[in-house]
């Protein structure tokens, strides 16, 4: 699979494959109770890409994400992450995972939550002073300076999710796997988080695989949108997003943006009808 043309000058998509799914199938349970979550999924995500997965609920978007993260294992087919097995990629700390819920540890302060991956990974060649600087930089990047000493339950939902974003970025993974990270936030916070995420993506060399329910969000953020069918989930269509970078509010108001949103919406309704 070749990487799509993004008509972008600011953002350079790599030529190497970051994540690839080949004939992937995943079944949950066994015997008569077994449910087929996804089937025959072929998908290649190039380095430096921002790909959104969108589809009706229960279509296995999260399953795909968890397969890449080696949190579950496929029933068939192969998943390759950075030319390795997902397990090796996980042990090499190649990706950061962001859950729908912030999943912060209540007993740790904001600062210590962000420091958690560094504690576990014992990353070599990073002095403790450098680690501290990095945490500080990330917290201020997500707009949380001054909250280092707070505990998660003292923060709003949006602030908590920003802590989890900082936590995922702190060890500089080459891939971010995001499972509806902003789904629980109000629209204003969500828009702001989207723009922040997009800025982070532009500034760093990260590949992002992003699961979402929101069509505008998918179009605004990604350079490709993958539309999936209802259970068992398959790839219905891959829609390249040829919007210019940086994706600002002006882009959100352009005609092309609306065309793309409509295209995704139509593809999505076809995906739902096709299943019936």
């Amino acid at each position: 699979m070749t990487t799509p043309d993004t008509s972008s000058e600011a953002v350079q998509i790599g030529t190497q494959t970051a994540i690839s799914f080949e004939g992937v199938r995943k079944e949950f349970g066994s015997g008569v109770n077994a449910t087929l979550a996804i089937e025959m999924v072929d998908l290649n995500i190039a380095e430096r890409e921002f790909v959104s997965l969108i589809g009706p609920s229960g279509c296995g978007k999260s399953t795909l994400l968890r397969l890449a993260a080696d949190l579950i294992e496929p029933s068939g087919g192969t998943v390759v992450v950075n030319d390795k097995t997902p397990r090796q990629a996980r042990l090499d700390r190649d990706y950061g995972f962001i859950f729908q819920a912030p999943t912060l540890f209540d007993w740790r302060t904001v600062w210590k939550n962000v420091a958690l991956p560094l504690e576990i990974m014992k990353i070599s060649g990073m002095s403790s002073q450098k680690k501290e600087e990095e945490i500080e930089r990330l917290l201020s990047m997500v707009g949380l300076d001054g909250f280092e000493g707070h505990h998660p339950y003292q923060l709003s939902g949006g602030m908590q999710q920003r802590v989890s974003l900082a936590r995922a970025l702190v060890f500089r993974p080459s891939i971010l796997l995001m499972d509806e990270p902003f789904g629980a936030l109000d629209e204003i916070t969500r828009d702001r988080m989207n723009l922040e995420l997009h800025r982070i993506w532009e500034e760093t060399n990260t590949t992002i695989l992003f699961v979402t329910h929101s069509i505008p969000e998918a179009v605004l953020l990604s350079n490709r949108v993958v539309v999936m069918t209802a259970r068992p989930g398959r790839v219905q269509e891959i829609i390249p997003v040829d919007l210019p970078y940086p994706r600002t509010t002006e882009v959100e108001e352009s005609t092309r943006y609306y065309e793309l949103v409509t295209q995704v919406r139509e593809s999505l309704s076809k995906a739902m009808v096709g299943d019936r």
């Binding site: 080696d70 949190l71 700390r93 995972f97 859950f99 540890f105 576990i120």
Partner: peptide
Amino acid sequence: DSLDLMASYG
């Protein structure tokens, strides 16, 4: 989720 998070850090 917490267990998955820890697993993702290896």
